[in-house]
Design a protein around this nucleic acid. Structure first.
Lengths: 220, 220
DNA sequence: AATATTTGTTAGTCTTGTCTAACTTTTATA
DNA sequence: TATAAAAGTTAGACAAGACTAACAAATATT
């Protein structure tokens, strides 16, 4: 299980994209986009991942993680989310500050560290974004995620997490006052551009469709 | 201050060697040895460090850290020692387990992380090995270090830290029962091979000169 | 079905950091 | 002080992982 940082980043990206795209497929361009690399780089790395038996892949074909590759990816997600929890709960980091640091911390190699960190935090089930933290065995289920953009006028919901965890987006979310568990009501839905007027915490905000697509919610 | 892991490792190594060798000089071979690299690699990296204005150096000449290089090195030492403290005090790591993990953690880039970690730990002054933790400004003094091997029969002292922080050595130290602040008395000193018989915690142990050279103490 | 567009791959180059082998300079020693 | 030993450097090779430009395959569109 001695995997370099780069390989880990690829595996995690593949994992995310497979799990978040509707068709369950991760394409070369999508990956390149996600990782900020050229498609050519991704293509050549896929060959290496295949040699290391971390993915299955045929030219122009479907990309999948092997069991081994999947395990590494899930452990990274676990580490990432435990660190985010630590940073928020113990070190006064805010929601929008944790991602970047957790991304570095997730690459630290030490099984004892993660076991002890998990114990220290009291075996948390969710991270500060409301996402499920996979357990030691790597078991977890993706929440069936619905975004705000899929709702209709009059619907009531609660924010459970966000899709785009870029600092810019998180900052925006925080600034307009949305937080984990915020209760939101859809006041208006404009067909013209799919923007919507929502209310929460006694105020109303007008949000774009793009914004709404990045907010995961549960109905209430 | 955007410095890669490798460059950081070089700077820290240079810093240590300059501060721990009697003559205050860090040579290419010494560095190569310390970093487990060939002298050739070190030689070529020194050229790059010089270009980046992190060291001053002339071919075959004296190697020194610039102010900038020195600052980076001290901050690394600070980070390393804060993380060691965290691992021991909060995550049940033992003395001989922390080094390797702290070495990875010290490369995480986030000033907020270190400020908050320091606060969280209550601004500790010493790490679990008894070494001084440099403050936020990078101020600190190396303790004038005396090793056990410099003492004579009948001397009394207290263990304050160890020189060789390799896992193997730390394990050895732990196994024979020596710990931070252990009170030690020199019972015998054999001129033949400079080994010594020492007593601490109601027991006596025979130790080699090499071992004694790696134990820092203060007289008592 | 023919063609355009999108998606993915290959070839070839660059950079970084490592290595070995050969060489040079400095230091120690006889 | 001449020479041997140690310390340090250079040249050239290699591997990894990135890039661009050119090409090939798959998918969509008319």
């Amino acid at each position: 299980m001695d995997v370099t940082k780069n390989i880990e980043d690829y595996l995690k990206a593949i994992f995310y994209i497979i799990n978040e795209s509707k068709n369950g497929k991760a394409g070369t361009n999508q990956l390149a986009d996600y990782l900020n690399l050229s498609p050519a780089s991704v293509s050549s790395m896929l060959r290496k991942l295949k040699e290391k038996k971390l993915v299955t892949y045929e030219k122009y074909g479907k990309l999948e993680l092997t069991q081994n590759g999947h395990e590494i990816a899930v452990q990274l997600v676990r580490k990432h989310r435990l660190w985010e929890t630590f940073l928020c709960e113990q070190l006064n980091f805010s929601w929008d500050e944790v991602h970047e640091v957790a991304h570095q911390l997730e690459h630290i190699q030490s099984s004892k560290l993660i076991i002890e960190l998990d114990k220290f935090l009291g075996h948390p089930k969710f991270d500060p974004h409301g996402d499920v933290i996979p357990d030691e065995k790597g078991n977890f289920k993706f929440r069936s995620k619905i975004t705000l953009s899929e709702l209709k006028k009059g619907d009531l919901c609660r924010l459970i997490s966000v899709k785009d965890s870029s600092a810019v987006f998180l900052k925006y979310v925080t600034q307009i006052g949305l937080a984990l568990s915020s209760e939101i009501e859809i006041k208006e839905l404009r067909e013209f551009d799919n923007s919507m007027l929502i209310s929460f915490n006694e105020k109303t905000e007008n949000i774009s469709n793009k914004f709404a697509e990045n907010i995961y919610i549960e109905k209430v």
